[in-house]
Design a protein around this nucleic acid. Structure first.
Length: 219
DNA sequence: CGCTCGATATTCT
DNA sequence: GAATATCGAGCGA
């Protein structure tokens, strides 16, 4: 029995809360190879929340455009965009009733199933570098613009997110790779505390910004 | 290691 | 025409 899929209600909460709660869940994509069903999956270990008018770094900051309109629509959908002429980024739309737009960027994943296929998509052997970054995840999972605005809450689709485990510790840090609104803590990373020492998950994208964080325990 | 820099196309001004 | 929610090669220490 597969773990339960994340529902519309899961994503129908404050974008920051959803970004936090997504840590420890599992991203799943099914593909077909020689008429066999193959599962690619990985634990989400790093996310960032992007909002609306109060968030200058968000694509939705200046209002609705053809690119960002998914952020204004129903929650639990994919928001995929192309950036730097090279990479796709994978987001999930999420917002509460009183929020106008919002999405969560998936920045880091720990590969679980279908690793050989991910290596093939990435043309790379090193597991540690397979999915530790937003552009790497979409390449490893074979996700491109075609997957924009897909419903992630339908088990019949080939892309969805299922429940995982409750993390020992989640850290909130400043978001990275942006120039505006850099002082808010809307990036969440998986960590664990063992004998009073904090360990950051190895598949979090490596950046010096990891050095400063707010400790943020789940539940 | 860590830092700098170029590639590359879509989007928005 | 400028900016970009990135990546990896290539450098130097």
């Amino acid at each position: 029995m597969d773990p339960p899929i994340l529902t519309y209600e899961f994503f129908s909460r404050d974008t920051n809360v959803v970004a936090k709660k997504l840590i420890g869940t599992k991203l799943v994509k099914t593909i077909r190879n020689n008429n066999r069903k193959i599962t690619l999956s990985g634990i989400i270990v790093e996310t960032e929340a992007y909002g609306y008018k109060s968030d200058e770094a968000s694509h939705a900051y200046r209002g609705m455009t053809t690119r960002n309109m998914v952020m204004f629509g129903p929650v639990g959908r994919t928001y995929i965009y192309f950036t730097y002429g090279n990479h796709y980024c994978f987001n999930v739309t999420a917002k509460s009733k009183n929020q106008i737009a919002g999405a969560v960027l998936i920045r880091g994943v720990e590969p679980k199933e279908g690793i050989e296929y991910m290596k093939d998509y990435r043309n790379l052997d090193d597991i540690m570098l397979l999915t530790n970054g937003p552009g790497k995840i979409t390449q490893a999972f074979g996700i491109d613009k075609q997957y924009n605005n897909q419903d992630l809450t339908n088990i019949n689709n080939d892309l969805y997110i299922v429940k995982g485990f409750i993390p020992n510790l989640v850290l909130a840090t400043k978001r990275i790779g942006i120039k505006k609104s850099i002082h808010v803590y809307k990036r969440y990373i998986l960590a664990s505390k063992i004998e009073n020492k904090i360990f950051i998950n190895q598949f979090v994208s490596k950046k010096k910004e990891n050095n400063h964080f707010h400790i943020c325990r789940l539940l």
